[in-house]
């Protein structure tokens, strides 16, 4: 079976015109906010917003949940891990819209973020999106536990730059890689075990 072709087909189906408009809307909103209000935030507040608040905001937004629960996706001859990779791409790309917009706003003000910090911010947003995917197929308290886990993971990624630890960038990005890998594997397991029952 050609998993790559199937993955691309699923991604193409998810990333349509409405998705692109939504992405650009997020990007533009954060660009504007950063361009207007960035000086009001200090370094610490900016990092907290970018590494913790943005990923958490993106995580609790569940517009993609309904699309993912459609039966048609589960009728496809794919393993959970293949489906997880294909499913994860669209939310991850969505999660990057807000931080990239913020970077753009800062660049317009000629106050760009250090590249290392930029890498941490992007990594945190990717981790936030991947950890929160676990909540898509769960309801109630279980779903909220995944949001809490998103908060914990992103806070852990924010600690090295906020505490100005040596090698903060390497530490945060390394930690993010571990979190992202674990979250994607766990999501694959979730999909493999999930039974899409009718409502």
């Amino acid at each position: 079976m050609n998993g790559g072709r199937a993955t691309l087909a699923i991604v193409r189906r998810r990333i349509d015109r409405a998705y692109a408009c939504d992405w650009l809307g997020r990007f533009a909103a954060l660009c504007l906010i950063a361009a207007l209000f960035a000086p009001l935030l200090g370094r610490t507040a900016t990092l907290v917003v970018l590494i913790i608040v943005l990923p958490l905001g993106g995580a609790t937004e569940s517009a993609h949940a309904e699309a993912m629960r459609r039966t048609s996706f589960f009728a496809m001859p794919l393993y959970g891990r293949q489906l997880a990779r294909a499913y994860a791409l669209a939310p991850v790309v969505t999660a990057l819209a807000a931080p990239l917009g913020f970077f753009c706003g800062l660049a317009i003000r000629h106050e760009p973020l250090a590249p290392g910090l930029g890498a941490i911010v992007l990594a945190a947003n990717i981790v936030g999106a991947l950890v929160a995917l676990g909540a898509v197929f769960r309801d109630g308290v279980q779903a909220w536990l995944y949001y809490a886990l998103t908060l914990v993971c992103c806070t852990a990624l924010a600690v090295p730059p906020l505490a100005r630890l040596p090698h903060a960038v390497a530490l945060s990005v390394g930690l993010a890689a571990v979190f992202a890998f674990t979250a994607l594997r766990a999501f694959g397991e979730t999909l493999a075990r999930y039974d899409p029952l009718p409502f």
């Binding site: 039966t71 589960f74 009728a75 039974d195 899409p196 029952l197 009718p198």
Partner: peptide, 17 residues
């Protein structure tokens, strides 16, 4: 019921275990 019929179909469609 309609729900039971759907679940049975999904079971034979390898969608529900």
């Amino acid at each position: 019921s309609p729900r039971a019929a759907s679940i049975a179909a999904r079971m034979f469609g390898a969608i529900v275990k």
